[in-house]
Design a protein around this nucleic acid. Structure first.
Lengths: 332, 332
DNA sequence: CTGAAAGCGCTTACAG
DNA sequence: CTGAAAGCGCTTACAG
């Protein structure tokens, strides 16, 4: 059977308490030979402490949860990677969950994670569990929102400066002389604040550049309907000559469509993508992109979470905005 | 403070045992009104069971660990996603760790995961911790290897039929008339069996097609040296006219290089990639690929792991080979 | 300098 | 049909 602290104590001829002190490096008053005896016992028995037992007593599992919309998105992947690296330094582990933008799944994951006593949660919220978010914040349970935030919730959030992202894109287009600029976003863009911000930023930037806002140039679509949406948009009497792709999946659909239809980029349609995709700079043409600093955002999220874990009463309503960066390539 | 089973028991006026029975749905002999009292108490107190405490007693944490080489690889991401989906059905959680192909990091993660009493581990092994792998297998600790396996270890593994992958590529090239076929692989290809298999499959297929094996057409390189390696290869008196890219990162380097140098695909250099990348079919030209069934492999890995979790004495030396699929596009 | 005892929040035979 | 008791493997005041 598994060897426990009791076995070590017996083998070393000391008490469990002493072994425990040793394990926790509380050597203050420990006789050198006691140390050695215990060390030996541990090695000879091949003892490994049971962290579950420790967690029960200490009320910390040295584990955090991350609930993402979908691990298959580049952005999520990079954020998770950054969180993982950060946690590794502190000997924490991360449980990764995919909510698939489904509030029920999200709720289930939050409950399970809390039942498993994770020390904190980083979440890309669906927005569909407001009472739960509020409850956690009220209880001062450490939680950090990433990528999106929920209006009315007083939690900490790590966000892109979405207005600016849209502005950068619109400015770049107008600088190059494009005047019929469309934006295509993943579905539910309007229920999720940051997405709305991108659309607002887009509208404002348009006006700032003396261009009119054309509602039929603004589309929020499910991935599977995107090509149809594009088709309709491009069939307008005055079709757009430039388009902002709201995220990596959107870009993928747009490129897939232009390829199918033999539409030349940027001559027939200019493109700027929000989110950098790995192939952006080897594509023909290279894709001009608005890049989110995903690693920094992930690191900041982890960092913030640990501040909260270490001090539950940290003010809970900060929003950290990260600067998007325009990478000019040749699709516009 | 947190409400515990004791609070619920007191509030409902029953014993902890009874509450526990209720929680575990052992209703066999429970009076209807006892149930109702407990149900009420739980709701009114907002009780959530502490799974850590349960785990300590039950010796199961309903959590498994996944140690991957790098979550930033598409293949890993897809495998993880499949595992996650599978686990979700069973109300298990997955702790994701990135070993970065570093045996020390891998060792640390294995130890931590076991200390946290995970019920099993799925691992993309570095190959650098043979004694640890052996120890786990000896102890009948549930473990499944994915993507690579370690020679001499009697563990279960989920692998691609690598010989076949290479053969498919070579056959496709020769069918199209290419006769100077190179293969470029990520570094350490020779210390990791499946990578070696790809090279062997490549050699055999060459011979089967009546072509000679030219050692300078076979390269195993670190990502950062790949472009240099390509440069050298293409500067040979008889440079290759076709190249197999061993995985997604390799493909990326190859395309980046051909783009920089203005090399036309497939006219000046034909390409087949092992691993499908999301942009393969929108690239110019579309990339002919050998696809691994990543989701099925992930699902099988999870499935196998749970068989072992439920029955530790399951024969431990099965290797499951998955069929790669050639997707003909236009890069060759 | 070290140990006995209580306790973390559950579960599980077993008794009644 | 339900409860008292022991136990899972640790940690932590506290006593000596």
């Amino acid at each position: 059977m598994k060897v426990t602290i009791t076995d070590v104590a017996r083998y070393a001829g000391v008490s469990k308490s002493t072994v425990s002190q040793y394990l926790n490096k509380r050597y203050d008053y420990m006789a050198e030979k006691t140390k050695i005896k215990i060390e030996q016992a541990i090695k000879e028995l091949g003892y490994h402490p049971n962290i579950v037992a420790r967690s029960l007593k200490q009320k910390s599992t040295t584990t955090i949860g991350v609930i993402t919309a979908n691990i298959l998105h580049v952005f999520s992947t990079q954020v998770i990677r950054a969180i993982e690296d950060f946690c590794n330094e502190l000997d924490f582990h991360v449980i990764v969950c995919n909510a698939d933008d489904d509030p029920e799944k999200e709720k289930k994951y939050i409950d399970m994670l809390r039942a498993k006593q994770v020390d904190g949660i980083i979440i890309f919220p669906t927005g569909g569990n407001v009472p739960t978010y509020e409850q956690m914040i009220k209880e001062e349970f450490p939680i950090v929102f990433v990528d999106r935030y929920v209006p009315g919730i007083m939690g900490s959030a790590i966000l892109l400066d979405n207005m600016k992202a849209a502005t950068l894109a619109v400015n770049e287009f107008t600088r190059k002389g494009y005047d019929r600029i469309a934006i295509i976003m993943p579905e539910k863009a309007d229920s999720i604040t940051p997405r709305m911000e991108r659309i607002n930023g887009y509208k404002e930037a348009l006006l700032d550049n003396g261009l009119a806002v054309n509602p039929s140039y603004i589309q929020s679509l499910e991935v599977k309907n995107m090509k149809k949406g594009l088709e309709e948009m491009l069939a307008l009497p005055e079709p757009p000559n430039a388009i902002i792709a709201g995220n990596d999946l959107t870009l993928y659909e747009v490129l897939s469509y232009t390829k199918e239809k033999g539409i030349t980029i940027p001559d027939e349609l200019a493109i700027i993508a929000i989110d950098d995709v790995p192939f952006a700079n080897i594509y023909y043409p290279e894709i001009t992109s608005i890049v989110q600093p995903a690693f920094e955002m992930g690191t900041k999220a982890a960092n913030l979470l640990f501040e909260k874990i270490n001090n539950h009463s940290i003010p809970n309503e900060e929003v950290f905005r990260f600067e998007p960066k325009l990478i000019v390539r040749s699709s516009c």
